[in-house]
Amino acid sequence: MAGDRKHKGEILAVGGGKGGVGKSFILSSLGMSLARKGKVVMIDGDLGGANLHNFLGVSPPRTSLIDFFERKVPLSELIVDSGIENLSLISGMVGTTGGENIKYVQKKKLFSHILSLEADYILIDLGAGAHFNTIDTLLLADRKLIVVTPEILSIENMYNFLRNLFFRRLGSALGQHGYRELVISVWKDRRGLGIKNFQQLVAHLKNISPELRGLVDCELKGFKIHIVLNQAKGHRDIMIGNSVKSVCRKFFGIDAQYSGYVEYDESVSHSVNRRLPYMSAFATSRCARSINKLADNLVSGQQVRIVS
């Protein structure tokens, strides 16, 4: 864990390219699992499409992030009970235009409020897509979870998402050294520069100057992601998580961990449709146990053990 953190709780955020890969289900279930270990606050950061409360089986809270942005209510006053011990929720904004118009200052303020929340674990659910507000929130997290399903489109999407994520981070890190424009222009002109893949792009940046080389290496090394494979239907699917991790390490040069997989269970959609919190309704299912294992791995820093 980063040594210079000043905030109390550990921040976990779930992102990923595509909608429907199970981000909200995994985050809400992780929240319920982690609530056995400590105090958990979940934030529905899917601005515009808030639905985390559904996964917990509670009705939409009356207060939400909209009160933070429009009425300047402190974030800590927007926390509502989830009905589950040790677990509370800050709702997103239901049926508004969404978070894409949030101003920089508002975002900064939200981040500083998140960092000062009193909790052992702060879990942030993010919307689909790679809007920079989504990406910045993910970058804020101590543990960045990327959810992927064992399907080629989901994996492709994830790689794209990772590229965006990494370049946003690189842009802001290099920006502090006066290289912001350079990164943006290289990224934009990548076709013209004959850059066909991520590796070549990174190599191009590194070859510009020794200083840039040092900065890029440092950013790549410090960039850690946790891969979570959802809807695993068997050993082969579980192995895909391992291959994705390997590709992330070898082709992106990113410190990728395979932190867990979640077994496929058709009861998940039943329980979501009936607004039952899955982790208590199906507490002993294989799927629920795989989520508990994922939570343990995230806390201990372990990875999926491949047995073949």
Binding site: I155, Y159, K196, S243
Partner: peptide, 15 residues
């Protein structure tokens, strides 16, 4: 053609 290769196939244009 096992599923295991999906992670590579998804990058086939770059690898």
């Amino acid at each position: 053609l096992l599923n295991d290769s999906l992670a590579i196939t998804a990058m086939s244009e770059e690898i």
